[in-house]
Amino acid sequence: MDDCVAAQKPGRSRLRYLPVEQLAPGMALAESLDFAERNIVRHRLPDGQVLTPEDVQQLVSSRTDLVRIVVPDARSDEEIAAAAAFVRASVEAIFAGADLGQPALAALFERVLAYRSQ
């Protein structure tokens, strides 16, 4: 979790979903979050917001389950390339028998690859 803190520092980053119980002050939101009551938005935390202790407590007390945050990526270019190659090979093995000329299968393949590559 510590590697998620201070995500606002410049440098390479990646996105990750975290359960609200694992959030900590200093983490940065990757997408905005709305807090609504009876379908009316009462409060919004914007994309890029660095979480304060109060924000974290508000999220933990809310119905939110997962939050997408920005995580600093300290990996080297070589490590990133190796991880990407591993992910692609793993996903291609799962879809080895699929006809990726079919739009639904091709779209799912690309989505899973993108999700695993984050």
Binding site: F95, A96, G97, A104, R111, A114
Partner: peptide
């Protein structure tokens, strides 16, 4: 292993495999 996915099923459920699926 994934070898088949019905387009009609995805359409029937209104599923799109864009970043909203993440």
């Amino acid at each position: 292993r994934v070898s088949a996915l019905s387009q009609q099923c995805c359409d029937a459920l209104g599923l799109r495999w864009d970043d909203s699926a993440d």
